[in-house]
Design a binder for these strands. Structure first.
Lengths: 384, 384
DNA sequence: TCACTTTCGAAGGAGCGCTTCATTAGTAGC
DNA sequence: GCTACTAATGAAGCGCTCCTTCGAAAGTGA
C-alpha cells in the first residue's frame, strides 16, 4: 500500500528498461528482435531502450553471431562485469571470501585460516586479507566493489551489529558492518551464516527454485534456517532458526552422541571425533550405527518441529556432517515419515564448504535486485 | 522474474488507475486535488483517470462537502458496494457466515447451529442457510457475490479439497470448494480456520499491521498459524502450523490438564470442563492454578518452538480459552521468557468468536487485491 | 550473380501526462 | 447586497513514449 506513486511517461520507460535488463540477465546475449519479442515491446521502442541502457553502462553490444539467415542482428548482453560483489564467510577455523560479477558468477576465491580462539582484531585482519586476496586474484580494484556481504554465526541486527554469537563470544556488540566499511568503502551487508547457506541451496544448490524449504546446519554446532515464499526468513529481531535453544528439540546435545561414541580413538581432537563415528557407521560398525541412530533420533525432533510448523517442500541437510549424508539421510527420512503430516523431500547439500560464501554472494545479488526492481525505485543509475 | 511484460501507454494508465483506487480505499472520499497530490499525478490527468474509473463502476462521485473556502471540489469515493464478499466459518457446533463489501466492512452476520456429529449433507445445508441468510439480511442477490471464502479445520489443498480434518473426519477427500460452487455460482476459496484467524488478527485485530506473527489457537483442540512477511503462510502442501502433531511439543494432550482438574464438577460435558478450571484459577483456587500451570507448561513448549524458529514480533493467543487470557498470559509470558532468544510480545485475541469469519472475509479481500494489483494483471474490468 | 531472409532505420501517427491560464462557484468581510 | 478572496474547473497546447509501416541493407544459399 506504500507505493502510491502515479506514473509519469518516464516511469514507463524505466519499467521497460528494467524489463529489458531482466530479460537479458535471464538469457545470454539476445538480438534486438528477440529482446523485443520477450519484453512485448515493438522493435523501434526496444532499440531506444537498449540505446539508453548502453549509454548508462548496464548493457553492451556484442558482435553479431555469424552463420544466420538474413541480415546479421545486433546483439546485446547484460554487463555483469560493470560491478563486483564480495561474499565472506567468517567461520571458526577459516575466513573464506569470493568475488563475483553482478550475476553472481564467481571469479575468484580465497581462504585465510584462523585459530578458533583468535582475538577480534586477528579475525578482522584475516577478513581484510581474504577480501584483498580476491581483489588481487581477479585484478579488480576496490572502486569496482559494489557490495560486501558477510556471513557469520550468531544473531545480527539489521544494521549489522552482532547481538549474540555462540561460536565467537568476543563478537558480542561488535559493529561488524561498520568495521568492514572502514576497511572497504562500499555497501556492507551482514547475515547469519545458516541463512546464507539456506539461500545458496535455494538459488543454485540442491533446492534450486524451491520456494519453501528448511535448511539444517548439522555439524559440531547445530543451526537452521528457512526460505519462505522464495526469500530467506529473518524474523522480527533477526533471531529466526534458533530452535537449537529449545531443550525439547534435543538439538543442543545431539552431536554428543557422535563425539562420545566408543569407536572414536582416545585423544582425538573434539572437532574430528564425529567423523570417526560417521565413517565407522558407513562401514557397518554396529556401535557406530547405534550412536548415529541416537543422533538422528534427536535431530529428527527439532527437524519435525520445523517441518510441521512450516510444511516446506524440501529439507536440505548441510553443514560439516552433511558429507556423511549417505549415512544420515535414510534414518532421518524414516524418523520424519513417522512424525510429519506431509513428508517433505530430504536432500543433502550440494554446495559443501562453499555454501556460506556462495550464499553471501547470492544475498548481495538479491540485495542489488531489490534496489533495482523495487516498485518505488528511482531511475536506473549510471554504472560508472 | 516472470513479469517480463513491457509496458504500453495503456499500461501506464492502468498503473495510475490502480494507484488511484489504492489511494481512495486507504482514505475516505477525496477531492480531485487531494487525489492528484497523493498519487503524484497532475490534476488534469487525475481527472481523466477518475472519469474512467467512474465509467467502469469502481469509483463514484459524491456531492461536494460544504463549508470550505473557494470553489467546491468534486469528491470521489471507492465504490466498495459494487460487489460483495462472504466469509464462512464451519465449526464443530456452528456455521457462521458474514457478508461484507469490497473493503471488508461487515454488513450482515448469521449463525446456524449444527450438532458436532452431524452428517455431511446437514452441515452443507447449514452452510447454505447461513449464506442465504446473510444475503437476505443485507438485501443482496447472488449476482452481487464476487467471492465466498470458507474456513474450516484441517488440511485443505490448493483446489479446495479436504485432505485431512481432525474435527470433522467425514470431510476427508470432500471437494468442498466444488460443493459450495454448486450452491452459489461464484469464486470459492477454502482455507484452514487457524490461518484465517491469524490473518484477521494481523489485519484488524490485536496484531494489526504486524508483519511477522504467530497465532495460537488454544481451545479444546490446539492449532497454530503464522503470518510471515505480511502474508499467511500456507506451506507447500497447505499443512503448515500442525505442530500439535509432534509429541514433543506437548500440545496434543495439553488441554487434559484443564479438563481433568479436580475442580470440574462431576458430569460436566467435556466441552465445558476447561471453563470451570480457568474460572476457578481466576478466583485463586490453588488446585485450578496448578492445573493451569501444567497446561501452560505444555503450551509453552510448542509455542517456544514456533517463536525460536520464526522470531515473530507478536504472539496472539486466540481460540476458546483465550477468553481466559488474563489467567493464561502471565504464566505463558513467564515460561517463554525463559526459553526464547528474543521475547516477542504476547497478546490476547481481540476478535473472539468472529475471528475466523472475519479472517475469511479478509482473505477474500486479499485475494481480490492480488488479482487487481498483480504486476501482470490485465486492465481493470467493469464491476457490472 | 540472383533470389531469399531477416534486420535496420526513418517517417508518420496515436495516447498519455504535463503546464498554463482564463473562468467559475463558493466563503468572508463590509 | 456588494466586493474581495480562495480554490477548483475546463480547455488549449506541448513533449514524450510507444506503435505501425515501409523501403533499404546485409547477410546466406543456389
Amino acid at each position: 500500500m506504500a507505493d502510491l506513486r502515479g506514473g509519469d511517461l518516464s516511469r514507463l520507460r524505466q519499467l521497460n528498461s528494467l524489463t529489458a535488463i531482466k530479460a537479458l540477465r535471464g538469457a545470454g546475449p539476445l538480438t534486438l528482435s528477440a529482446l523485443a519479442e520477450r519484453t512485448g515491446l515493438s522493435r523501434p521502442s526496444m532499440k531506444e531502450v537498449a540505446d539508453e541502457l548502453v549509454e548508462l553502462g548496464w548493457v553492451e553490444e556484442v558482435r553479431p553471431s555469424p552463420g544466420t539467415m538474413g541480415r546479421p542482428a545486433r546483439r546485446y548482453r547484460f554487463r555483469a562485469d560493470s560491478g563486483h560483489l564480495v561474499g565472506v564467510d567468517i567461520g571458526a577455523h577459516n575466513v573464506r571470501a569470493a568475488l563475483s560479477d553482478l550475476d553472481g558468477e564467481i571469479l575468484a576465491e580465497t581462504r585465510q585460516p584462523v585459530l578458533p580462539g583468535a582475538p577480534l582484531d586477528e579475525r578482522l585482519a584475516a577478513l581484510e586479507r581474504a577480501i584483498s586476496g580476491c581483489l588481487a586474484l581477479s585484478r579488480t580494484t576496490v572502486d569496482d566493489l559494489w557490495t560486501i556481504s558477510v556471513g557469520t554465526s550468531g544473531v545480527i541486527d539489521v544494521e549489522g551489529r552482532v547481538i549474540y554469537s555462540a561460536a565467537v563470544p568476543a563478537w558480542r556488540d561488535l559493529d561488524l558492518a561498520g568495521r568492514v566499511r572502514e576497511m572497504f568503502p562500499c555497501e556492507v551487508l551482514i547475515e547469519n551464516d545458516s541463512r546464507l547457506a539456506a539461500l545458496a541451496e535455494s538459488r543454485r544448490g540442491t533446492a534450486k527454485g524451491v520456494r519453501d524449504m528448511v535448511f539444517l546446519h548439522v555439524g559440531r554446532r547445530m543451526g537452521a534456517a528457512a526460505v519462505i515464499g522464495g526469500t530467506v526468513h529473518r524474523g522480527f529481531g533477526a533471531a529466526s532458526g534458533e530452535i537449537v535453544m529449545l531443550p525439547e528439540s534435543r538439538w543442543f546435545d545431539a552431536p554428543e552422541h557422535l563425539n562420545g561414541c566408543a569407536v572414536v580413538p582416545e585423544g582425538t581432537p573434539p572437532e574430528d571425533a564425529a567423523g570417526y563415528t560417521l565413517a565407522a557407521a558407513r562401514n557397518g560398525d554396529p556401535v557406530a550405527l547405534e550412536a548415529v541412530g541416537r543422533y538422528v533420533d534427536d535431530l529428527a525432533v527439532g527437524t519435525a518441529a520445523m517441518v510441521l510448523i512450516l510444511d516446506p517442500e524440501v529439507v536440505v541437510l548441510g553443514g560439516g556432517f552433511s558429507r556423511s549424508a549417505d549415512v544420515l539421510l535414510p534414518p532421518l527420512r524414516e524418523r520424519l515419515e513417522r512424525r510429519c503430516m506431509r513428508m517433505p523431500e530430504v536432500r543433502a547439500s550440494t554446495l559443501g564448504d562453499e555454501c556460506v560464501v556462495v550464499g553471501a554472494i547470492d544475498y548481495a545479488v538479491e540485495h542489488l535486485d531489490r534496489q533495482l526492481f523495487a516498485p518505488d525505485a528511482g531511475p536506473l543509475p549510471l554504472t560508472r
